[in-house]
Every structure is written in C-alpha cells, then in structure tokens.
Amino acid sequence: MKLIIQIPCYNEAATLGLALDALPRQVPGFERVEWLIIDDGSTDQTVQVAQRHGVDHIVRHRRNLGLARAFSSGLAACLYHGADVIVNTDADNQYDARDIPALTAPVLAGNAE
C-alpha cells in the first residue's frame, strides 16, 4: 500500500519547510509514503524549498488557478503515481502531521474510504 501526502502551495516558501519537516516518511500499514506538492503558480522559492526537502513529486501550474484546481490536480497526480490512500495537508503547517496515522487507520481497517 502506498500513501501519498499532498500539499497545495501558493507562495509558501516561508512555511513549507516546516510543514515538510513534520511529515512522516513511514506510517503504519503502508509500504511507501511519498510527498507531492502542487505549485499553484508561485512566484517565490516554493519549488526549490520542496526540492531541498526531498519531495517526491511536484505538479506545477504556470499561473495561480486556485485551491480547488490545485487540490484536483494533486488528486489526479497522486492516482497517476499509484497512491492507494491520499492525505491532503497544508503548507502553513496548520495541521498536526502526527495525526496522519490516526487519520489513515480507519481506511486501513476497512471502516472508511
């Protein structure tokens, strides 16, 4: 099973590194955990920060298309890269990455989709 954690980004260079540093590379029940960012037309160093932190996949929009389009592009890319489960989080580090195992546990147990 593969988990991909996706992060929509628009000019998030200042905070993305903190969010990525908190993300797990191992989650119980998954053989692989990968990270994907969606660069929604950023004009700062968002992509370079992602690359320095070892992000596995980067989707780039040439211009800002908005959160809904970024989210949708991310889902499509995660599926393309073989995700069995996708978790969306935020580049501002507003969500506690330590909650990801609890979030995915019902899916792994077959109690949620």
Rank of each mutant, 00 (worst) to 15 (best):
G29H: 12
V49I: 15
D40E: 14
L75E: 09
G54P: 07
V55G: 05
Q45P: 04
V85M: 04
A68E: 11
V85G: 01
Y80Q: 15
L75Q: 14
L65E: 10
H57L: 02
N64A: 14
S73M: 06
Q26N: 10
Q45L: 13
Q51Y: 01
S72R: 11
D40L: 05
I37R: 00
A68W: 09
I86T: 07
A70F: 05
P28G: 10
V33E: 03
V59Y: 04
F30Q: 08
V49F: 04
L36Y: 04
A50S: 06
S73P: 05
L75F: 12
V27D: 01
Q48S: 11
D39P: 09
R69S: 09
D44K: 12
H53G: 00
R60G: 10
V27G: 01
E34H: 12
N64H: 13
H61C: 08
C78G: 08
A76K: 12
A83N: 03
Q26R: 09
F71P: 01
V55W: 01
G29S: 11
D44A: 11
F30H: 05
R62H: 07
G66Y: 05
I37H: 01
L79C: 11
E34D: 10
V85H: 03
W35A: 02
V49Y: 02
D40P: 06
G66W: 08
R62N: 10
S73C: 08
I37G: 00
T43R: 12
F30N: 05
D44G: 03
Q26A: 12
R32L: 11
A83K: 00
P28M: 08
V59I: 07
